[in-house]
Each structure stands twice: as structure tokens, then as C-alpha cells.
Write a protein that binds this DNA or RNA. Structure first.
Lengths: 230, 230
DNA sequence: TAATCTTTGATTGTATCCAATAGAATAAAT
DNA sequence: ATTTATTCTATTGGATACAATCAAAGATTA
């Protein structure tokens, strides 16, 4: 849908990657000028990239106030995860109806890659874990479903960046293995159940934190200190 | 997600509406110059709107060749309808879990509106029929789900414009009534079944046409005449 | 005549420019 | 001392301008 030939694509792609990998954290300002300088392009070009990212929900583009990395609220966080459950459920449903042999083969190859970088390259490991879910969606053959999953997985990264502890981002390799096994068995019920359990785990580690919403909420944090000083 | 204060919004919104209502048919070129003239804005502004529409899949923006209304293939058409089934199923599921009273009230008000313009104002009638599905999604309270449904309903309009007969676009008022009844009864199974049936009907009328894909395919049409001339 | 090359006109891609706005810093007033 | 006005600066919104590209028409060749 987005042609890589344009000059704005590298800008879009880099920003996207940086946001997903949490190098650019929620709320960080994205001034057109400085971004244009780093990529040696004009503001016009940067703007195009920002508009696309805004449409995807990764960037918040406010009139006359510029762009910043989107800051999901706790309500949006739940909304995003619920939507993800719905979409990935559909992926499981469809995959189990297909000829699972080539599907399983592709998945196992990816799994090997995941295992290879586990405990070696954390950034890459997290990226691969996310791409596992995108691969699942792509294997259904539905471009639209794959697109939606891709989008929702990105937004989940944003949610994790906002609410989760550092280590809770990596989703379990074993659970990925179990999901593949269920698909290989052609058992949709089990595949769906395992995916649900897997995603629920990620969600819980993110949204049931002791810090929870207070993490970036100054007044909440300060309120804990008031009583101590009295 | 998209702020209406900007100057590009009216351009975006008008184009979108025109495409959905099939005033701009699939494949029609959208030159930046002439669009800018009609709205009295610069190409920069038009371009922004086009980028957004491209991201939504309503417009096809090809490098150095400009924008045109997207032309879904028959495969994409099926893909879009399948995705729609998935999303609207989720809507039914969620609505039935809620307090259905205010939901049903809002739906019945909308239905009255639909009935009012049936056989009176065809354009408005079709628009209202589409908005019924968007209203359903909005009533779940999930912004993201509502957004996706909105997008997929628009793309379904494109599919209808490409493949369906003129009259097959209007989706039945009675079926909408039945769906509301199922929600009112708090019966998710039935609500889902009725929605599925409803959407399947729309899909069939569109994609099981005698013309089918050949509608805009010159070589296919001409091939029917070759044998007659021999 | 058919095929390939060349030119031309129209349209897009992108940089630059100026006006408008927001937010900060300073000054004035209560 | 705290609030309210008033600059001032940084940044965005959007128009314009020019270079790059494409598609079609015309010219050239076989």
C-alpha cells in the first residue's frame, strides 16, 4: 500500500521501527525540522511520513502543536489488546483450515531464528517475537488481515512502552512452540485457546503492574510522599 | 485521529464521501491540480488528503503516476468481505454482553431514520444503511473496533462499485430490524448468525453477478463477440 | 507498414518561503 | 507575591517554485 520509492518512506520506516523498539518513547516530541536534518530531506517529506504514522495510530499529530509519539491511555491499552485477541483468534481459525504443512514449516524456521537470538541480542529477540505474530497473519494469505495484525502489534508495543516493566516485553518462546504444535495438529480450538492464553499473559504482565497507570503520572507518585512527611 | 481543523480535512472528507457513494468510481484519476482548484487549496494540501486516503485503502497512490480511486480485484473483494464478517461478528459478540437497553434505543432511532428515507432518497438511504453498521460498532465503546469497521465498510462500498449491479447496494431494512431484535433478546448466537446471513447476502448480490469480474474487463467482454463473427 | 526513437506537454516529487500560531520569557499591574 | 499583559522565539500550516518523471504524439528508420 505504501510505495518504498518515495523519499518519505525511509523516514516513515525508521520512525516506525524506533517507536516499536521503544527507542522513541511515548510522548516524545517529533519536530519536523530536526527529523528532516537527520534524514537530509525537507519538512514536506517528513510531514508525509508523520501523516502516515498518525493514520496508523503510532504518532499523535495535533494541529499547530506538531507530532509526538502517541501516548495510549489505560483504556486504549485495554482496547488495543482486546482487538488484538479478536484478530489473532481469526488468524488461528483460518490457519487451521488450511494445508498446515507449509505453514508449520515456515513457522518452525522462524522459531529457530527466535531461539538463535534469545539471550544473545535482546532487541532483535523482541523484534523477532513480534514478527512471529505478523508471520502467522501473513500465512493466512489475507493481505488485509495481515495488515491489521501488523498495525495492532505495533500499537501493542506502544502500550508496553507506556505501561510495562522492561523485561515483560519478551513473549515466551515456549508458548510460540505450543501454538505451532496446535496448528500442526489442525486443532482450531486448542490453537485459539493457546493464543488467547499467550496474549493474555503479555497483557497481564503489562497492565497488571504494581506501578500501573501511575508510572508516568507525577501527581499520583507525589501523593505517596505527602503522608510520609506529616 | 484526524483533526478537522486542518485545511486538508474537507478535501479528504469530500473525496471519501464521493468514493463511498460511488460518485467517483474505481479507477478514476484524481489529479492534484484540479482537485486543488475545486477546493481552492494548494497541491500540498490535496496531497495530504490523498496520502490519508491511500493509507485507508480507498485511493491508490502510485509513484510518479498520481492518485486514482482504488480498484479492488476479485480476490481483494473476497478478502475484504471475509474481514468484515470477522469484525462485525466481534461487534455482535460485544454488544450482547453489554447493557442492551440504551444500545437498542439508539439502534431503533437510527432504524426510524432509515425507514424515513427508504424509496425517497436513494443516496441517503444507502448512506444510512452503511452508517447502521458503523453505529453498531461505535456502540461497543471500542474506538479501535469502530475505526476498523468504518474502514472496512468504506472498502466494501468500493467493492460494490466495482462488481455489483446498481440496485444490489442497498442492504435490507428488515434484516437490520431482525439483528436489533436479536441484540434486544441478548442472544449472541442469533445476533451473530443474523449478521452473518445479512452480510453474506450483500456479498452474494455483489460477487455472484453474471457479469462478475468481466464487468470492466474489456478483453473478457470482447472475447464473447469473437465467436459470433465467425 | 510496423517498430523504435525523440520530443513535447502534463503531472508529480520535493525544497523553499512566508504567514499564522503556540508557548516561553519578560514586563506591568494589582 | 501573584496574577495578567505583552513581547519574542521556535515551530507549524500551507502556497509557490522548480526539477524530475511519465505518457502520448510525432519523427525516424528499417
Amino acid at each position: 500500500m505504501y510505495k518504498s520509492s518515495s523519499r518519505s518512506f525511509p523516514v516513515y520506516d525508521s520512525l516506525r521501527q524506533a517507536i516499536i523498539e521503544q527507542a522513541l518513547k511515548p510522548g516524545v516530541k517529533l519536530p519536523e525540522d530536526s527529523i528532516g536534518e537527520t534524514f537530509s530531506v525537507s519538512r514536506t517529506t517528513v510531514r508525509n511520513a508523520l501523516v502516515r504514522l498518525d493514520a496508523e495510530g503510532l504518532v499523535d499529530l495535533q494541529p499547530n502543536r506538531g507530532a509526538s509519539v502517541a501516548v495510549p491511555t489505560i483504556e486504549e491499552a485495554h482496547d488495543i489488546f482486546e482487538m488484538r485477541q479478536c484478530l489473532e483468534r481469526e488468524v488461528m481459525q483460518r490457519l487451521c483450515k488450511m494445508d498446515v504443512k507449509p505453514v508449520v514449516k515456515a513457522l518452525k524456521m522462524h522459531l529457530a531464528e527466535e531461539r538463535k537470538y534469545l539471550d544473545v541480542d535482546t532487541t532483535r529477540s523482541i523484534r523477532l517475537a513480534g514478527e512471529f505474530h505478523i508471520l502467522l497473519a501473513e500465512l493466512t494469505g489475507s493481505k488485509i488481515l495481515a495488515n491489521y495484525v501488523n498495525e495492532i502489534v505495533s500499537r501493542c508495543s506502544l502500550v508496553l512502552a507506556r505501561f510495562a516493566q522492561a523485561h515483560s516485553a519478551k513473549c515466551g518462546l515456549d508458548e510460540h512452540t505450543d501454538i505451532i504444535a496446535a496448528i500442526e495438529a489442525g486443532d482450531p480450538e486448542q490453537a485459539i485457546a493457546r493464543m488467547h492464553h499467550h496474549l493474555h499473559g503479555v497483557q497481564d504482565r503489562a497492565l497488571l503492574n504494581p506501578d500501573d497507570e501511575e508510572k508516568n503520572n507525577v501527581s499520583e507518585i507525589l501523593s505517596r510522599y505527602i503522608s510520609q512527611n506529616n
